[in-house]
């Protein structure tokens, strides 16, 4: 059984039914890592949110999403809630908005653990410390006692990773998890994800091809709600077929152009990429 089977997924918003995702279909293997790449407005984030049932109220969803064989489209909230954290979890872009600023980090992670395993009352604190250690915190005790604003950006993101993995979900959705981080911390978090996502399936949403390449085997390229190209990441980078993909690859290769020369822009390849 595939981890995810998405068929003809369409997401539209509001009364005017603005289409964000247009008949999207793909499958995700049990331990596969799939990248979804596109720019703002391509529908990539909406796709990620749809997989975990976190779309806003004004979203109209049609099509099918099978998570471990269970249909998510049309499922009521009370059926979806127990899945979150246990079978599917999400790592967001902005740690400061995903973490509660008034609650100590250890307690927030503990709440996630307790949500699904109420019987393990005694061992929760130890489990929290264990996870903080696993995500690379050098002083788990201190971090657990801290509030989010007392930690660095990298530490906060590690805490988010811990929260997302604490209940060992089979599918982890990452929505631009390193976009707000500087280049060194980004590298560390990507290495961490590479390590911790072993044995799980992952959907990695990003606008940065170079980042996706670090973590994923396969990638979907999205433009205006549709998939324009898909395949193994190295194939796509080596031999991009669709003009938009070619533009993405060129945009990621700034280093190849000597100083003073003009950088190739998306509009050189396609009309869909005007800044």
């Amino acid at each position: 059984m595939n981890r995810l089977e998405v068929t003809d997924l369409t997401v539209a918003f509001g009364r005017r039914r603005t289409v964000a995702v247009d008949r999207l279909s793909f499958t995700l293997g049990q331990h596969e890592r799939l990248g979804i790449i596109g720019q703002s407005g391509s529908g990539k984030s909406v796709t990620g949110l749809a997989m975990i049932g976190l779309l806003p109220e004004n979203a109209h969803v049609s099509g099918s999403i099978l998570l471990n064989g269970r249909e998510l489209v049309g499922a009521p909230e009370r059926e979806l809630r127990p899945l979150r954290g246990d079978e599917v979890s999400m790592i967001f872009q902005e740690p400061m908005t995903a973490l509660d600023p008034t609650m100590r980090v250890g307690r927030q992670i503990g709440e996630v653990v307790a949500l699904h395993h109420r019987d393990r009352r005694g061992g929760i604190h130890d489990e929290v410390l264990d996870w903080l250690g696993r995500v690379g915190m050098t002083d788990p005790e201190r971090v657990a006692r801290s509030f989010p604003d007392e930690l660095s950006g990298g530490q906060r993101q590690r805490a988010l990773v811990a929260m997302a993995l604490a209940n060992e979900p089979g599918l982890v959705i990452c929505d631009e998890p390193t976009t707000a981080l500087d280049v060194i911390v980004q590298r560390q978090i990507l290495d961490l994800l590479d390590e911790q996502l072993q044995g799980r399936a992952s959907l990695f949403v990003s606008h940065d091809l170079a980042v996706v390449r670090q973590v994923c085997d396969r990638v979907l390229v999205m433009l205006q709600g549709r998939v324009v190209e898909s395949g193994k990441i190295d194939d796509i980078i080596e031999d991009p077929q669709h003009p938009y993909t070619r533009g993405l690859v060129a945009a990621a290769r700034i280093g190849n152009h000597p100083r003073g020369t003009r950088l190739p822009t998306m509009t050189d390849f396609t009309e869909g990429g005007r800044a």
């Binding site: 720019q39 703002s40 940065d208 091809l209 993405l248 945009a251 990621a252 700034i254 950088l263 998306m266």
Partner: peptide, 19 residues
């Protein structure tokens, strides 16, 4: 803060203006 695919246009612009 911009998408990677959009950066080149703005960078070209900056470069041209500075030159």
């Amino acid at each position: 803060a911009l998408d990677v695919s959009v950066r080149a246009q703005v960078l070209n612009l900056l470069s041209d203006a500075v030159t």
